[in-house]
């Protein structure tokens, strides 16, 4: 197959309040591309629309959300044109997702084996016995000790790290092409975090998975990803190869984010923080949404939202400073 695995074009998802009076542009005109086996990090503060973007890709949104426009080409076909039944057969089988809170992601009333075997039975029509055997193998592949015992246990009998790996096992159970991981490590402590990230990378390599990694941690992106997309107030403000963007960030928001990472051996006494608060997504400021917090703000930023400029090969930025006609 030629072309990228996933090609998202001008995707917008809005939340509409019950009376239709308040519209929140959670995802606003987002375009991105993911190659087979590639790793894309989506970075942004809480409320910047990262999770909504991920759920939009699977068309699994809360009732108040509407996908207003855009196309989602997955393996060449537009997911927006699929029926509910077709999209359901893609969920969990072709595109899998790991949720933010792994501790709460498992149903307390069913055994681990039942929950890991479930997608195999539903998507592949496997018998109870063969799905159960597959579940045991999957537990082994996510490095759970004594999988034959664990498979019969209930979630509350397992540690947080183990539960997280089981959620991982569920995600890869049907050999998906894309795995979306939504802040999968925030609830784990640091050593377990590192182990889990390594596991995800190994799974990616072994199964030739494309990985979308949603996080607010730029350090994790540097370790895990080859592409990065920075979100602010529902928009992608900067996107491109990780190394390129970390070396030469074009957007002031990305620059500020990178500056706020604490580094070992740093002599500054205080951490650098970005001034101000992220905007209310229901009432973003006019012009560029970042302008009230931007250290390089210009008059034009207050009235006119910048379009996407190509800064370098494969690097884009939504900032007037990146406008080639004024640079």
């Amino acid at each position: 197959m030629s072309g990228p695995l996933l090609d998202v074009r001008h995707l917008s998802t809005h939340y509409v309040s019950a009376r239709g009076t308040r519209v929140t542009r959670a995802v606003d005109d987002v375009s991105l591309v993911l190659d087979v086996g590639g790793t894309l990090g989506i970075v942004g503060e809480s409320g910047s629309g990262k999770t909504t973007l991920a759920l939009t890709l699977l068309r699994l949104l809360p009732p108040a959300a509407r996908i207003v426009s855009g196309e989602i080409f997955f393996e060449g076909a537009d997911l927006m044109k699929k029926s509910d039944g077709e999209i359901r057969r893609i969920r969990g089988k072709r595109i899998a997702m790991i949720l933010q809170d792994p501790m709460m992601s498992l149903n307390p009333l069913f055994t681990v084996g039942d929950q890991v075997a479930e997608p195999i039975r539903v998507h592949e029509g496997a018998s109870r016995g063969s799905a159960w055997n597959r579940a045991t193998e999957l537990l082994k592949s996510v490095r759970i000790a004594a999988p034959e015992t664990r498979v019969r246990e209930y979630p509350h009998q397992l540690s947080g790290g183990m539960r997280q790996r089981i959620v991982g096992a569920i995600a890869i159970s049907c050999e998906p092409r894309i795995l979306i991981a939504d802040e999968p490590t925030t609830s784990l402590d640091l050593t377990i975090q590192a182990q889990y990230l390594k596991l995800l990378r190994d799974l990616q390599r072994d199964h030739n998975l494309a990985l979308i990694f949603i996080t607010h941690n730029l350090g994790i992106v540097a370790k895990m990803c080859d592409q990065v997309a920075v979100m602010y107030a529902g928009r992608l403000v900067e996107a491109g190869p990780v190394r390129q963007i970390y070396n030469a960030p074009a957007h002031p928001y990305t620059q500020a984010l990178l500056e706020s990472i604490p580094r070992v051996g740093d002599n500054r006494k205080r951490l650098t923080a970005i001034d101000g608060q992220p905007p209310d997504p229901a009432a973003p400021p006019p012009g560029c949404a970042f302008h009230p917090r931007c250290p390089k703000v210009m008059d034009r930023c207050r009235s006119e939202a910048p379009p996407e400029f190509r800064v370098a090969d494969a690097q884009t930025s939504r900032c007037w400073l990146s406008d080639p006609t004024t640079r």
Binding site: L60, R91, G92, E118, P119, V122
Partner: peptide, 14 residues
């Protein structure tokens, strides 16, 4: 509204 129901939907269950 629970996470495990969300996960069940993400698995592609009917």
């Amino acid at each position: 509204g629970s996470e495990y129901v969300k996960l069940a939907r993400l698995k592609g269950l009917p």
